[in-house]
Every structure is written in structure tokens, then in C-alpha cells.
Amino acid sequence: MTSLFEEISDPTPDDVPVNRVAITVNGQKRTADVEPRLLLAHFLRQGLKLTGTHTGCDTTNCGACTVLMDGKPVKSCTVLAVQAEGREVVTVEGMASGSELDSVQEGFKDEHALQCGFCTPGMMLAARALLNENPDPTEDEVRFALSGNLCRCTGYQNIVKAVLWAAAKDRGEDPTQAVEKYTAKQKGANQ
């Protein structure tokens, strides 16, 4: 990989700082020479062609670029690639194992938790981080954990359902029932 990418590097002068990084991305060790100013989001998207990580606002607000770094959700537009040196990064491409979807992905599919899909990768990784820490979250806890991720389609209702669905599945309970219970509670609250 070149030090930076075509769109931002003129013919690279010799005095440009370059650091070698070795980052485990989705279980695979990837090595590259990068400029320190390269953002992790750009390393993943342009460098590794893992375009599932979306760059939305580019200002640390929207959470579309969320990936897991050593298990913690981070906004990859606000982490330098050199900072991921020696760390483990999981992107949306690393969620499924083979043809088996992560329960969060299944939940998003089952509950129609995406409209345009732009926020989806970040939402799913933030949700995965939540469920790893708290396998039985309440609706409020789900909303709180996802409050750093924006959905411009405003499809939050189904996103919350999808995460509750995945949590139930992970716990070995019937996910459809868990969502029905939540929907019934909401209907009650609205009457």
C-alpha cells in the first residue's frame, strides 16, 4: 500500500513521514506503510477496500464509521490508522462467520431495521458492543447505547427492536416473542 492514497498524495516527497503498521482486521493481520495522518476509516475503506465502514459526517457526530477496536466501539474517522497498530479491529465485514450472520445482523434483517442502510454498519457494531457487555438490555439501555449513532431515515423504532431481537437470540430465548412483548408494551403505553 502506498503511504497515502491517490486522491490526497501528490508524488510523495522523500521527507514525508511514514510509519509501518500491523493491524489485525477481522482476524487477519494486515501490514502497511501509512502516513500518520491517515484516518483508520480511510485505511479500511481505501486501503483494504472494506467499504462497509461508511464515512458519514466526518466530524465525530454520526457514528456511521463505528468499528470495534479491541472490542470497544470507536468512530474510525476520529482514530488514526497508526493508533490501531497492534490492535484488533472488527468491521461490519467481520461480523458474520462464513454464511452465518451475527445475531445482530439477523435481527436487523428480521425487524427491517434499515431503510437506506447508510447508518447500518455503525449501528450494528455499536449494538454488538452493547450486547457483549450487557446481554439483557432494556429498551432504554439500547437507546442510550446507540445515542452516538444517527439514522437520518429516523428508523430508530425498528433498530431498537432488532437489537432486542438479537439480545433474546443470544440468550437462547425466542427473539420474535421478545419483540412482540416490547411492541405490546409500546401499544399499551400509547393508549
Partner: peptide
């Protein structure tokens, strides 16, 4: 602390 930035920013 729960209202500092947002949950993802609070990881870092």
C-alpha cells in the same frame, strides 16, 4: 459522565 459526548466517543 453519562452526558459527556456520546457513548462511542466515551470509549476513547
Amino acid at each position: 459522565v453519562p452526558v459527556v459526548a456520546d457513548p462511542i466517543v466515551r470509549s476513547r
